Computed example of a mutant assay.
Amino acid sequence: MPKILEQKKLNKYPIKLFKYVRSPYWWFSFFVNKSYSANGMEYQSSKLKDVKKAEAYSISYFKKFNFEKYENFKTKLIQDFHKDIAVPYFNVRKLTNEKRYKKELGQYNNEILPLFKDIDYSNTSEVEEKVSQLFYNLKIKGLAVATCRNYKIIISNMFKKALMNNNIPFDVMPEFPKLTGNSIRRLAYSPKETKQIINAFRDEYKTREDMFYDEVADFLCMLKSAGFRPGLELLRIKRNHIGFINDPLNPNKPIMKVTLLETKKDRHTQTVADWFRDDVYPRIVNRYPNATELDYLFFPNEENREKLFNRIRKNFIRISDKIGLYDVNGQKRPIYTFRHSFISNRRSKEVDPNIVAIHSNTSVAMINKHYQDLSDDNLVNIHNQLYPERTRKQKTTKNY
Rank of each mutant, 00 (worst) to 15 (best):
S60Q: 14
I335Q: 08
K161T: 06
R333E: 07
T259H: 13
M366L: 13
Y336F: 10
A144E: 13
Y288V: 06
R313Q: 12
N315A: 02
Y36S: 04
N110S: 11
P191F: 12
A226D: 08
L105D: 02
Q394G: 12
R100M: 12
H340G: 04
R186K: 14
K47P: 00
K264H: 04
K16P: 00
H241T: 04
S363T: 12
Y121I: 05
L134V: 05
T396Y: 12
F30I: 08
E68F: 01
Y400G: 10
I382V: 13
F316C: 13
N345K: 07
P24A: 00
V51N: 09
I245L: 05
N97F: 03
E293T: 12
N399E: 12
F81Y: 09
Y20K: 10
V356K: 00
W275K: 00
V21F: 15
F30Q: 06
F62K: 03
V258Y: 04
D352Q: 10
I154N: 04
D171C: 06
L5S: 11
Q44Y: 06
I319N: 05
K178A: 11
F135V: 13
E204G: 01
S375Y: 02
K238Y: 06
Y205G: 01
S360D: 04
S156N: 08
R311Q: 10
D321T: 11
N123E: 14
G142R: 13
F276E: 01
T263I: 04
S58P: 08
A357I: 08
Y25H: 15
I15A: 04
F212L: 06
E111N: 12
Y387N: 15
L115H: 03
R339D: 02
F276G: 02
P353N: 07
K8T: 09
L77D: 08
S37K: 07
A200G: 10
K141I: 09
H383C: 04
K253N: 09
A217L: 03
S45N: 08
R267E: 14
G243Q: 03
F244I: 01
Y326E: 05
H359W: 12
R283N: 00
K9A: 10
D376V: 10
L297H: 07
V285M: 01
F31Q: 01
Q7P: 02
E262Q: 14
K192N: 10
S132A: 15
G40M: 11
L374N: 11
S29C: 13
R313V: 02
A188G: 07
L163F: 09
E233I: 06
L386A: 11
K63N: 10
G181W: 01
S375M: 09
T75W: 13
K52V: 00
F81G: 03
K195F: 03
S341D: 14
A291C: 07
R208M: 11
K238R: 15
A56I: 00
L138W: 02
F219P: 00
S363Y: 09
D210E: 11
S344I: 08
V272P: 03
K16A: 01
G142Y: 12
Q133N: 05
L5C: 02
G330S: 07
I355M: 12
K130E: 08
Y121T: 07
K152P: 06
P353Y: 11
R333Q: 11
L261F: 13
R283T: 00
S156F: 11
K206S: 14
L5G: 03
E303Q: 09
I112S: 13
I255P: 07
D210P: 12
I168T: 07
K206I: 06
F67E: 06
S183F: 01
L249C: 00
Q394E: 14
T391E: 03
L179Y: 05
I15M: 05
P169M: 01
N166W: 00
